[in-house]
Simulated scan of single mutants.
Amino acid sequence: MLKTMNCGLAAIAFSIGLTGAASSYTRHQQQACQGDAMRLCGPVIPDHARIHSCLKAQRARISHACRAII
């Protein structure tokens, strides 16, 4: 239960971080990368710049939809 709660809080932080820090990203783009960010870059959420860097570094492991955006 604690893990589920932490994931929920991280998802909220991630979405707030992207909404505030990266208003140029569309909702579709945010959704395309949210799962990858949670799975691969959880420790850097909600820092948008670090999430972006992390996703770029993990490019081979992210979804095709997110890869197209990154």
Rank of each mutant, 00 (worst) to 15 (best):
A37V: 03
I12Y: 01
C33H: 07
T26C: 03
L2H: 15
Q29G: 01
S15T: 11
F14P: 01
C7Q: 14
A68C: 08
N6A: 15
Y25G: 01
S15R: 12
F14G: 08
A37M: 01
R27H: 08
R59L: 07
M38H: 05
A10Q: 06
I16W: 07
Q34W: 00
I12Q: 05
D36A: 05
C33M: 03
I70Q: 08
I16T: 10
Q58R: 11
I51T: 01
R59S: 09
I70P: 04
I16P: 02
H48S: 10
C33P: 00
I70S: 06
S63H: 04
I62G: 04
I62A: 05
T26E: 08
L40K: 02
K3R: 14
A65R: 12
S53Q: 12
H52Y: 13
C66E: 04
R59A: 11
K56A: 11
S15L: 13
A60T: 10
G8T: 09
R27I: 10
H28C: 07
Q34I: 04
L18S: 08
C66Q: 04
Q58T: 07
V44D: 01
A37I: 00
D36M: 01
C54W: 02
L55D: 00
G17D: 06
A49L: 13
C33T: 00
N6E: 15
T26I: 04
I45H: 00
A57W: 06
K3G: 12
Q58G: 00
G20V: 14
R27G: 03
G8L: 13
A10K: 09
L9A: 11
H48Y: 13
D47W: 02
A21V: 10
A60Q: 13
A22H: 09
Q34S: 09
Q31R: 09
S63K: 06
A37C: 04
I69T: 08
H48W: 13
H28P: 04
I69S: 01
A32Q: 09
F14N: 02
G20Y: 10
R67T: 03
A21D: 11
I45P: 06
G42E: 11
G17P: 04
I16G: 05
H52T: 15
C41P: 02
M5F: 13
G8I: 07
H48G: 05
L18A: 09
L9R: 09
P43V: 03
I16E: 10
H48Q: 13
A21H: 11
L9V: 08
H64Q: 14
A57L: 08
L18Y: 08
D36C: 07
I12P: 03
A21G: 14
P46N: 03
T26G: 06
K3H: 14
T26H: 00
A22R: 13
